[in-house]
Amino acid sequence: MSLLEVRGLRVHYGPIQALHGIDLVVEEGEIVTLIGANGAGKTTTLRAISRLVPPSGGTIRFAGVDLTQLPPHQVVALGVSHVPEGRGIFANLTVLENLLLATYGRRDRARVHQDLERVFALFPRLGERKGQLAGTLSGGEQQMLAVGRALMTRSRLMLLDEPSMGLAPVLVEEIFATLAAINREGTTLLLVEQNAHQALKLAHRGYVLETGRIQTAGPAAALAQDPQVRQAYLGG
């Protein structure tokens, strides 16, 4: 059984159909990336998996459980975290409060402290700034906080929506290195990126999304060599 199995996923925004039947599989331990142009449906796919938008058709199974009828906060409890587009940090809360908030649904309170230490070890700057309001962080630090928060939910699968957006290249390298480390420690990643070059370097496999449909899929290294993918997303 795959960790995540999406079959025939369709999503409508009013009369507009955003996804036309997406099939996608993520195995435990993998890093899978979803690349494609603006408006291809990458964000919508993630939002449907975490149930922020209701699917109009198809199935989403996580560890065998159908997610399509669940409210989003229960999807988190099952073990799916989501680092949303634009980071979605709570600027009026401190860094520490942002991290603690993500443990709201957890019952293993005793492990929270240990997980905080882990996040601060991965992102020392968050530890230095834990008492600061999250709104005062730089863009890169906010992205670290968003990833740290997802870690605090103790998820098996982490959905990441454009973690490189708006960051300087050196910070992108740093974030991607950390994502690789998080994956080595056992968290499965489904990564949406416009920065296809970086994403394919990190991922094991990839899907190319075009106007709400999967266009191509395969091992990341093969996609990076695919002439059509190179032409469209890697600048030739």
Binding site: S50, R51, L52, P71, P72, H73, V76, A77, S81, H82, P84, G88, F90, A91, N92, L93, L101, A102, T103, Y104, G105, R106, R149, T153
Partner: peptide, 12 residues
Amino acid sequence: WDKSVVPLMGIS
């Protein structure tokens, strides 16, 4: 601050 992100923290 932002209702839309709160469910992602496992909160109803």
